[in-house]
Amino acid sequence: MTFLKVIRWMVWKDLISEVRSRETISSMFFFALIVILVFSFSFSMDQQAARELIAGIIWVAFVFTGIIGLGRSFSVELQNDCLEFLQMSPASKGAMYLGKVMANLIFMLTVEIILFPMFVIFFNLDVIEEIHILLLIFFLATFGLSAVGTLFSALTVQIRAREVMLPILLLPLVVPVMIAAVEATKGALNGDPLAGYWQWLELLAIFNVVFTVVSFWMFEFVMDS
């Protein structure tokens, strides 16, 4: 019971702080916008090329903005030594982990849902029929990012050169998420039958289960002495 309560309080705390300061979501959003712009300049795409590349571009933008959000997730805990407070707290570290994963998931999904219409407009995508499956892909892949990213955010925030180390450690590990998300998104945008890319959703689900469990266990060692 207290376990669920701690999760709820952690999510509540992060959400309230974000609603008041709007620091994380707005910085993620504008960073993503810039990424989209840079991509459209550097590839100068026509309709045909856009269809080939768009899934990759979407996910590169999402992963990079995700890293910004994840990095902030624990660097805000450094103010007034709040991280220390969490470490000293008798509450379950696993519950704190799940709370943070959820808060990060909410932030990242919010940004993705605001951004996606922009991709649709800028790159002339046709998505109405596949929107539900796209949302499922976004959810699964973002959950995977959040599950591993939250652990590494908590880890890198306690070391030197933390802004550099988070992407260096995180990006190789989320290669499967990247591949699966891009392939599934490509399938959905092309209007392929679901069976054609269903395996990628399964891969994402497996990744999420494995890494939620392992990170839940490892978080204890990251937060504790």
């Binding site: 652990l151 880890l155 030197r160 180390m165 590990l173 499967p176 891969l203 990251v222």
Partner: peptide, 30 residues
């Protein structure tokens, strides 16, 4: 990048374990 040897050992172990679990998934996905 870590000054405290105890923390260095602990964090390094976490990274190694996560990476090891990740490898088969990376292989299959690729």
């Amino acid at each position: 990048f870590i000054d405290d040897p105890e923390r260095e050992a602990r964090f390094a172990a976490v990274v190694a374990i996560i990476g090891f679990v990740d490898l088969p998934i990376v292989h299959f996905s690729v």
